[in-house]
Nucleic acid binder design. Structure first.
Lengths: 153, 153
DNA sequence: CCTTGAGTTGAAGTGAACTTCAGGTTGCAC
DNA sequence: GTGCAACCTGAAGTTCACTTCAACTCAAGG
């Protein structure tokens, strides 16, 4: 019980639904050993991976990008705190960019509230050019969906 | 040519694809008169509505919520700048909240980079409780998708 | 009149991130 | 050894915000 976690335990501890965990596994974000009876047993280090995934999602990173980032972790040795720190640092920039963008939006919105214009031409508000374009459809919200540690059924 | 806009013109001026404009109409976000030959003719005021929609999306509001907001505009008289300003102000709070949340995420991320922990238990980072929970699946990214004034075909 | 570009429709497809479901298997406590 | 919660799988469904498609009509210039 100290060695590894069942999917139910990992779900409870991480607050991520079991179905999501299986989904993450299919995408190669996390992995698990199997028991003789084919049930998943997660190493405790997977908790950290799940945490990283959820945090990254809040930064606005897609699962595919997260997978790529996680792939850059050393696979030979167990990732050290420094490895995680380095990985997290790469999101820092994205987060800053996003915050700056929203700040600009707020300022512009204030300006527009002042004049009530909402003019597409004059406002810097509506300027599709300089956004860090989230490619294609399906880029996701910064906020996590609320699903909690549901153990359905 | 000064009275009303065709869908092509509205698309060009707003930077929103024609298909999206028709979609918005189905959702009740915008509306149009029709010519004898059943073609849409948009009043110039629709430009402002489209602007409001896109700006609101950047704030992270769903189309359904935007529709509800637009429905609160006076339908008898033409919406005044003040009406638009009031409407925009309601998003201000959301935007602030979102910015604050991301700021917190950044600070926490810095803290975690420091210690490399990414601990679900200790970090304030991973705290599903206090988010302004984007209900259900499908809440969307703050960033607009880049589609530009495409006039396909 | 004819062509051509712009417009129309409803239905179906897309992509991300999941969830749900049906039907079956495991693990553990009693 | 039996009962039952917890687990397994693949396939299909869901939501949002669109886009794409096919098949058609309209408007305007030559």
């Amino acid at each position: 019980m100290h060695e590894s976690l069942t999917i139910g335990q990992l779900s409870a501890r991480s607050g991520v639904a079991q179905s999501a965990l299986r989904y993450y596994e299919r995408l190669g974000l996390i992995s698990a050993e199997r028991t003789g009876g084919n049930q998943r047993r997660y190493a405790r280090t997977e908790l950290r991976r799940v945490a990283f995934v959820r945090i990254s999602q809040q930064v606005g990173i897609s699962l595919e990008e997260i997978r790529a980032a996680l792939d850059s972790l050393p696979s030979s040795r167990a990732p050290s705190p420094d490895d995680w720190a380095a990985l997290s640092r790469t999101w820092r920039e994205r987060l800053d960019e996003r915050i700056k963008l929203l700040g600009k939006l707020r300022d512009d919105l204030d300006g527009c509230i002042g004049c009530g214009c909402l003019s597409l031409q004059r406002c810097t508000l509506y300027n599709p050019g300089d956004t860090l374009a989230g490619e294609g459809p399906g880029a996701r919200l910064v906020l996590p969906r609320r699903d909690g540690p549901v153990t359905p059924s």
